[in-house]
Computed example of a mutant assay.
Amino acid sequence: MVLPAPSCVDEIQAIGAVPKILETVAAMTGLRFVCIAHVTQDSWTACAVLDKLEFGLRPGDPLDVTTTLCEEVRDTRSAVIIDHVRESARYHDHHTPRIYGFQSYFSIPVFRPDGRYFGTLCGLDPEPVRLSDAVTVSTLQLFTELIAKQLESEHSLGEARAALLDERETAELREQFIAVLGHDLRTPLGSVMSGAEFLLLKHQDPSTRQVAERIRRSARRMSALVEDVVDFTRGRMGDGLALEMRMLHGADLRLYEVVDELSSLHPDRVIDSAIQPGLSLYCDPERLSQLLSNLLKNALVHGSELHPVFVVANVRNGLFTLRVTNGGPDLSPAVIAQLLKPYWRASSRPGSEGLGLGLYIVDQIARSHGGAIDISSSAGSTSFTFTMPAAAAA
């Protein structure tokens, strides 16, 4: 995204300290008109004005640059300071004092930090004022340096804002692309899975069945990745996870189905379950199954193969609790703080599959149900605990 370049007036007006600078300069010098002007080869534009003379100039108003002394400052890149026009050998017959009716005047060049000329800090008054003493000149120059630094800060801030907006738009386009890609992959993946199932039904040859089973496992794994990506983009793009909330009687049976499925996929691992019988929950059954499935996959992949994985689920005092615990080294608080973030994967087991979205989606499902995920790790075990109200809100 390309933002329009701010005008010189906008740049100066964006500096919060400018009004105070003009007031301080006016009080210090005694001049009743002070302004900051943007000066180019053929233009003079007021950017900020303090006018106690009712001169009538406002921010954005132009002057004919040839009628000003700022033109001389631009060309010489040096200050012009006049205490008393009538006593000045150089300026007493100059056309600018006659046009604007001043006797005292200063114009100090303002440069951007890269050396480019911006314009001037200038002031005038119909009465003569002592401006040329060293302290006054030095202070005025300090004010122009302050303005220059503020201009650079505002410029850098503007670039940062533009970069942020550009990055945000790029991220949204990327997520839209991923969502569309994920959606369009579902159909060919379904065909691959159906083909694998057909081969398993029609062929008894061991070598053929081995290939078909490998195709089916790979297609299921790809389908799970696609679903994770689609869920992720829904959450990130503001639509949120789709929920179909209803009262689920026999929720314990639904949870046992997930445990049995993961046990069959990991026959070498032990999953111990303690799920309260007869559970009734107000939830989205599919999302609840997905939440437990993601937690179990995480425990099986990242937990110690030497320890069983424990699943505990119950309702106490109207609160449903689902806890999955695995053995293994304790996780540091820094790692725990990252676990629910998208695309973040622990390095506990090299070559582990997935995009790092499983736990992020778990957190999104928990939030969508009005619940939360808590992670604890100590004494050689790590637990993910999901809690939510068991019944619908009144």
Rank of each mutant, 00 (worst) to 15 (best):
P19M: 11
K20F: 10
K20P: 01
K20Q: 15
I21P: 00
I21R: 01
I21H: 00
L22G: 01
L22P: 01
E23Q: 15
E23R: 14
T24H: 07
T24P: 00
V25I: 13
V25F: 05
V25A: 12
A26Y: 02
A26N: 02
A26W: 00
A27R: 11
A27E: 06
A27I: 06
M28Q: 05
M28S: 06
T29C: 09
T29D: 07
G30F: 07
G30Y: 05
L31V: 14
R32I: 02
R32T: 10
R32Y: 09
R32A: 07
V34I: 15
V34C: 13
V34K: 02
C35H: 08
C35F: 01
C35M: 12
I36K: 04
A37R: 05
A37P: 08
A37Y: 05
H38I: 02
H38A: 13
V39Q: 08
V39I: 13
V39D: 08
V39S: 08
T40M: 11
T40K: 11
T40S: 15
Q41G: 11
D42N: 14
D42E: 15
D42Q: 13
D42Y: 10
D42L: 09
S43Y: 13
S43A: 15
S43H: 15
S43G: 10
W44G: 01
W44E: 08
W44F: 15
W44Y: 14
W44I: 01
A46T: 08
C47Q: 03
C47K: 00
A48S: 15
A48K: 02
V49Y: 06
V49S: 09
L50N: 03
L50M: 05
D51C: 07
D51Q: 11
D51V: 11
